[in-house]
């Protein structure tokens, strides 16, 4: 059953125009919900990046007392590097740590620091990051060791925080997606109701169900796609803003969470696809009742 493009365009345009308020509502709902979906997808990729970066980086830091002697330092270094699960260690001098601390802390806090009181440190990469606990146990309280720190805890906290955020985002997005489909369904129903005379005449003279259905489904698809396009723009915008922030020095967590252009494109495509799907499913459900003979 060929449906001519001319006919399709004409019918769809007039339907969209007749229900323009509902159309706008449906498009906006799709836009908001898909923006949330897209952003949470980006966030998830960013977190994945950040955590792997940390896992490939330093796993455990042994801070040495400022008063540590060279002999103590040598012995500690030797013992740590000989542990089977330690891959490599790097010694950072007091001066290096002082500069780093100054960079990380606020100016007020940094003022109370001096090179002399800053601990030097050994930063080790482990074969298995989960062994950080064992090192902490062994070296806490060891002569010359001030304390053992591991960012594992920080990673875990960040992971659980982002996991909650993701769940909240996705739940919100799902609810909104559902309401978007219902809105589209309702818009289509209104459109059909407005044209029930035409639909009944079409059925009377033997138009196939697909012929009747296609313009309305196309309308739903356009609503879904338009909303998705807005959402895709939001996703790209969020990405650009985060990227700009991550490249400035102040926010280095964002820097570790940066995602590639490739990932942004994939996310955008997913968002568009979901929009079109919602549009077609919503409209297909909306029409069903009117086509039962």
């Amino acid at each position: 059953m060929p449906v001519s493009f001319d006919y399709l365009a004409r019918e769809t345009a007039s339907n969209l125009w007749r229900n323009r308020l509902m159309t706008i509502a449906a498009i906006l709902t799709v836009a908001v919900s898909l923006s949330l979906v897209g952003t949470s997808l980006l966030l998830r990729q960013g977190v994945a990046h950040a955590t792997t970066q940390w896992q490939h980086g330093v796993n455990v830091e042994l801070f040495l007392k400022p008063s540590v002697s060279d002999a103590q330092r040598h012995s500690i270094t030797q013992q740590v590097t000989q542990l089977p699960y330690v891959q490599s260690c790097l010694y950072r001098s007091k001066l290096y740590d002082y500069n780093e601390a100054k960079h990380l802390l606020s100016p007020d806090e940094a003022q109370s620091l001096s090179v002399g009181t800053t601990p030097s440190s050994l930063r080790c990469v482990l074969n298995n990051p989960s062994e950080a606990q064992a090192i902490a146990k062994q070296f806490n309280g060891y002569p010359g060791v001030r304390n053992v720190a591991s960012p594992i805890q920080a990673i875990k906290t960040m992971e659980s925080v982002t996991r909650v955020l993701q769940v909240v985002f996705l739940a919100l997005a799902l609810i909104l997606l559902l309401s978007a489909s219902v809105l589209i369904l309702n818009t289509i129903r209104l459109a059909i109701f407005a044209r029930r005379r035409e639909v009944s005449v079409m059925k009377l003279v033997g138009a196939t169900n697909w012929f009747i259905r296609v313009p309305f489904m196309f309308e739903g698809v356009i609503q879904g796609a338009a909303g998705a396009a807005v959402a895709a723009a939001v996703v790209v915008g969020v990405h650009l803003v985060l990227d700009a922030l991550g490249n400035s020095k102040t926010a280095n967590i964002l820097y570790t969470m940066r995602v590639s252009t490739h990932e942004v494109i994939t996310t955008t495509l997913v968002v568009l696809l979901v929009g079109v799907l919602i549009g077609s499913i919503g409209s297909a459900l909306g029409i069903r009742r009117f086509l039962d003979t």
Partner: peptide, 8 residues
Amino acid sequence: AFALEVIG
């Protein structure tokens, strides 16, 4: 014409 149009 509508009757002919909708049957393609």
